[in-house]
Amino acid sequence: MEGHQRNLYLYDRFNARVAGVSRDDAETLHHWTKELGLTFPVFSNPVGHLGIWFDALEVGSPMFSRNTVVIDKWGTIRYMQRGSPDYREILRLLKQLHAEEVGP
């Protein structure tokens, strides 16, 4: 999460927005986003359907697995990666998507 906060200015340049999703309740997320100084939205989804949609809810696990998803402006999922975010890979992709968006 802190890595995304560090890269927000670059996401802005590529016309990208970031949001987090967690199964924690809103009160817990409010505490942690404040503690970490996050300024982007982090959604609370205790029911877990977003985890099912994005393949981040393993059977029997009470929490989402770490998963990074990039969706383009047309709503197509262009990137999905388990584990810790590879920020450089994400930034390269966002640059490419922005180039597609603005055209030649």
Binding site: E2, G3, Q5, R6, L8, Y9, G37
Partner: peptide, 16 residues
């Protein structure tokens, strides 16, 4: 290369 915190100014970054 990526120290804890996120600010691009020194003082707030030091506290983070």
């Amino acid at each position: 290369e990526e120290p804890f915190g996120y600010s691009r100014e020194f003082e707030p970054r030091a506290h983070e």
